[in-house]
């Protein structure tokens, strides 16, 4: 990789991290804690929604976020021809 490509690769990685961690924070600190009381007015699968995010939704989101990052980074590695075999 040339220095320009390296800079672009790193910048893209940081952008992915920023987006994924924003979702991570919004679901756990937002929906499951700070907004939980407000969300409890709605219901999902028999749960008050805030309680559902606190006990189920946040954990399922975390799993999804990690696998999305795996996919994004593997694609990025392929794009720059640095995918490890």
């Amino acid at each position: 990789m040339t220095p320009d490509q390296q800079a672009a690769y790193w910048k893209q990685n940081l952008a992915y991290i920023a987006v994924l961690l924003s979702i991570w924070a919004a679901v756990s600190y937002g929906a499951a804690i700070l907004l939980a009381d407000a969300l409890d007015r709605y219901r999902l699968f028999g749960f008050p929604l805030g309680f559902w995010f606190a006990t189920q939704g946040s954990i399922l989101t975390f799993v999804a976020l990690v696998f999305v990052y795996v996919k994004l980074m593997n694609d990025l590695d392929r794009k720059y021809g640095v995918y490890e075999r």
Binding site: Y16, I17, L20, L21, W24, S28, A32, I33, A36, G50, F51, A54, T55, S58, I59, F62, L65, V66, Y69, V70, M73
Partner: peptide, 24 residues
């Protein structure tokens, strides 16, 4: 009660940090 979910989220959400910020 619901406040106990701090433990549930704390001990799973850290893996997101590990995967994107440290492990690789």
């Amino acid at each position: 009660g619901r406040d106990g979910s701090a433990y549930l989220m704390g001990w799973t959400g850290g893996y997101v940090l590990l995967a994107v910020l440290l492990a690789p």
